Simulated assay, not measured.
Amino acid sequence: MARRVGYLCNTCGYTYTSIDEIFWVDDYGHVIVKPLVKSTSAESSNAAIKGFFARYYCYECQKFINKFIIYKKSSDIDDGKIIQLIEQYDDNPKIIQFDDEFQRCLECGSELPSKADYSFALDVDDEFHIGEDDYDFSKGEKFKFAGVYHGYFCSNCKKQINKFVITENKAEFSDSQIREILEKHTNDLTIFIRRDFDICPDCGEEVYYLDQNSTCPNCRRDSLTIVDHMMVD
């Protein structure tokens, strides 16, 4: 079931409609993008490559950016081939992201299964928390930075990989500062940092998913308000 939401700028009359969408690659190598409803879920069920599709907006370039988040892929298909197929979908700029849990060994390139998944945070008192059942990771105002941890182990290289996906960085630390802090709270293991906010592939500025209270992309003087909301199946 897909959620469809209509937005309006009360200042300039600009309208925008968003809908939950998925994508998949069919047997002919064509990328299909459709709303997430029963029929499309069934149609895409056997696809070797599938994921979520979303449209983001770059205020700097004043254009929409297509984002493809891949959560299922056949091990027989190289990641580079998947990217090539998606790049051919249309002429719009694209962000192509493999699901956070996908990870290859940084030494041998083998695809690794996730062994551990935890929330983590550095609070305002500089205390580091990871995977603590009695700690409230939802209170973002108490964090300097926070995110999700994925742990991997490569049996070929005997190497542990710690992947930290940064979702909040209110202290505006640089990657090197975050890495230094993380290294103080882990053993001598490989640390890999990835941020979950998205960057325009053309200008390098952050892009945004338009929703309620987003700045109107047309006039930049008002925020978008919801004028229509319904579930589609």
Rank of each mutant, 00 (worst) to 15 (best):
N218S: 15
L182F: 10
K63G: 11
E111K: 05
N66C: 07
C108G: 10
D126S: 09
K73R: 15
S155H: 14
I77M: 08
A171I: 04
R3M: 14
I96R: 06
Q97C: 12
K38D: 11
E206P: 09
I70N: 09
P35L: 06
K34E: 02
C61E: 08
N46Q: 10
N213S: 10
K38A: 11
D228G: 05
R104C: 03
N218D: 14
R221I: 06
H229K: 15
R104Q: 10
D136M: 12
L112T: 05
K72L: 01
R55P: 00
T167N: 11
R55H: 06
K184A: 11
E101Q: 12
D196C: 01
I65T: 06
C105I: 03
D99R: 07
D79M: 00
K142P: 05
S138H: 10
S174F: 02
R104A: 01
C219G: 07
D188Q: 14
C203T: 04
D222N: 09
S155K: 14
Y118N: 08
D125Y: 12
G140I: 14
S174W: 03
A2H: 09
E168P: 06
Q88T: 13
E60S: 15
C157G: 06
D123Y: 04
R4T: 14
Y89F: 15
D79H: 01
R4H: 12
F153K: 06
E101S: 14
V5C: 08
V33Y: 05
V124R: 15
S138P: 00
D20I: 03
S45W: 00
P201K: 01
P113F: 13
G147T: 08
S214Q: 03
F145Q: 01
I96S: 09
I82S: 07
T190Q: 07
H150W: 07
D123S: 11
L224A: 12
G51F: 04
D133S: 14
G204S: 02
R220T: 02
R195I: 06
C216P: 02
T215G: 03
K50L: 08
D222K: 00
F173P: 04
N46A: 09
E43N: 10
E87C: 13
G204K: 03
L182V: 01
S44M: 13
V227Y: 10
R220P: 03
N156V: 14
E60T: 14
